[in-house]
């Protein structure tokens, strides 16, 4: 017989919370297929017209997607390098001020992105002529760095450093040890952190809306701009594609690194 460890009350609330969390996403997906401009339930018919509309150049969604991917991937790539070395320096060596250093590395997390964005905006206006992509890139790489540092540290701080001695005693030189022991073992944390960081950058609005120039606008800003002018199911269609993207990511994550990485 199985032990009963949870009551009906917690089960009920859990199910309600799940419904609450999924409801808007389900609504969006269904809405994306309505033929009418005003979303009705149940939908009157089925249409893919709004999906076709996404690719219409007047929406600028594809261009925005390209910009968002560029910024997100570049910032994440740089931060994997910066974040992993930073996490290693904290976890591998014992020294005074470790905690202070960790707080320093994660400090951008405690600053409202809108405040940081405004600071950058003032700096840029003082310097002048900073290109649109660089304006966003600097902001993004700073605000997403803490995610990679934190996730990597959370793996490395339970890391058993004797493993390095073990590898050394078996004939691995320091470089071999580095690539065979801490790197593969920290991988799940780094991957989870990189994924969160990338998504944060990809979805970021406050900073981008202050710093983007008319020539370089990211997808979320494009969607918000579109929303202000037209409130039609094209929004549902692009949203559905983004939801699909997240769904694919989470399935991949579950498969390759497991979801416990996110339970802090």
């Amino acid at each position: 017989m199985r032990e009963k460890r949870t009551g009906w009350f917690s089960c009920l609330i859990a199910v309600l919370v799940m419904i609450f969390l999924l409801a808007p996403l389900v609504v969006i997906v269904i809405a994306s297929f309505t033929p009418t401009a005003v979303v009705t339930f149940p939908p009157k018919g089925f249409s893919l017209a709004w999906y076709a509309n996404i690719f219409h150049s007047s929406t600028h969604f594809m261009e925005g997607l390209g910009n968002s991917l560029k910024i997100g991937l570049l910032a994440t790539a740089l931060d994997v390098l910066l974040g992993v070395t930073a996490a290693l320096s904290i976890c591998r060596y014992d020294f005074k001020g470790k905690n202070a250093l960790l707080n320093y590395f994660t400090s951008p997390m405690y600053v409202p992105s809108v405040a940081f964005a405004f600071v950058l905006l003032q700096i840029y206006s003082q310097i002048g002529g900073v290109p649109g992509m660089l304006r966003l890139f600097i902001g993004h790489f700073v605000i997403i760095l803490p995610y990679i540092v934190r996730n990597t540290v959370s793996v490395l701080h339970v890391f058993n450093w004797t493993l390095e001695d073990a590898a050394t005693s078996l004939g691995a030189n320091p470089v071999q040890v580095f690539f065979k022991i801490p790197i593969p073992l920290a991988k799940p944390g780094v991957l989870a952190g990189a994924l969160l960081a990338f998504l944060y950058s990809f979805d970021e609005v406050a900073l981008s809306s202050l710093l983007s120039t008319p020539r370089f606008i990211t997808l979320p800003i494009r969607i918000m701009n579109y929303m202000e002018l037209t409130f039609d199911p094209t929004l549902a269609a692009i949203s559905t594609l983004l939801i699909l993207g997240s769904l694919i990511l989470i399935v991949l994550m579950e498969k390759f690194i497991g979801l416990d990485m996110f339970v802090k």
């Binding site: 058993n160 004797t162 493993l163 001695d165 073990a166 590898a167 050394t168 005693s169 030189n173 040890v177």
Partner: peptide, 16 residues
């Protein structure tokens, strides 16, 4: 240390 050819059995095994 990596060239000494000394086998070590670690207290907590230190298996990879």
């Amino acid at each position: 240390p990596y060239k000494r050819n000394i086998g070590i059995f670690f207290q907590n095994y230190a298996l990879f």
